[in-house]
Design a protein around this nucleic acid. Sequence first.
DNA 1: GTCTATATTTCGATAGAC
DNA 2: GTCTATCGAAATATAGAC
Lengths: 201, 201
Amino acid sequence: MTPRTKEENERIREERRQQLLEAAVKVFTDRGFAATKIADIAAAAGISHGLVYHYFASKEEIYAALVDLAMGAALETTEGALAGSGSPWERIAAMIRAMLMGAQYAPEYYALVNQAMTVGAVPAHIREKAWRDGERCRRAIEKLLAEGQAAGEVAAGDVERMTVMIYAFVQGLALLIISARQRGAEIGPIDAEPVLRMLKA
Amino acid sequence: MTPRTKEENERIREERRQQLLEAAVKVFTDRGFAATKIADIAAAAGISHGLVYHYFASKEEIYAALVDLAMGAALETTEGALAGSGSPWERIAAMIRAMLMGAQYAPEYYALVNQAMTVGAVPAHIREKAWRDGERCRRAIEKLLAEGQAAGEVAAGDVERMTVMIYAFVQGLALLIISARQRGAEIGPIDAEPVLRMLKA
DNA sequence: GTCTATATTTCGATAGAC
DNA sequence: GTCTATCGAAATATAGAC
């Protein structure tokens, strides 16, 4: 038995952390923050519940890490679309496609964000952080829509309201997919065309 | 001190029950099923936590009563629209207006239904019941959309997919309104026109 | 690094006084 | 009908063995 090197330990630690996060996002979205027991996450990750505390200080910390991951991706999509190249409409269409793809491919993260923002049992500092990142996303989308209006590609109207509609649609879709999966059903693919129809000039 | 009559007691009991349900829907949607303590509901209703058990046998029973209320209203809206008079498009428009009005006027009930359907911590029999009622709503909407297609008023396409989009939009909107309110903000009124634009032939 | 065992807290539910 | 006091279960977090 050769002893483990420092690097090897570090690698194992990082792997376990990822393994834990992947398990946790499923459990949290399934049961909600309050009802999720450390033991549930441990079981889903295939480790003992005591060991969880070697990787995260608390249930809160795991949750916060997951919300950060999700919001990071959301910021990348929205602010990336704003900063990208191409006509406003092309970027809007690409962004909406990315959002819908995300909602259908990884609905758990969308549901988690929704949970973090709406459920009072989630620690306040996590909700605040999610909200601030969400506001950044909102501003990016609104700017992009305004560019589209200036280019005559997006229908006239309040961009704030349009953004609300996009959010509502995407979030609602993710939640529907999750509730269907919980029943063993599957919702067929929803493409961007109907959403774009709401926005097109 | 004249003694209370039987009828008076009955009236007090019914009033307290309503008072409890009204308080409970707010607390449940704010904190989720698992994180809601009987003491929270009692505090919101202004009574002691012990007294709650004189009106409902358990936390579950309160939750089930609320989900029944919400689904009853949903069934009335959707099946009523299907059975109503007027052209399919008129009935579709009225139904969507009613849904959006409901989502904005009483978003807690929409959020509660969403919770009941997606959160695993909710007792299975409540989730099953909500799902069954939800399926009845879905079928009513699909039939109505099909009638609209037959009349040439609704765009061609999969009615199941359209129903998913309507659901997603309405549910997502209710959740957005709640998360905004939690931050002290308010989302301006969203009318039916953009949704109808997704459906119109 | 990983596990089992346990201390501590919290909360749903009940009992009993008024 | 309403309250306060309390029981008992459950779950977070820790301690300590391997």
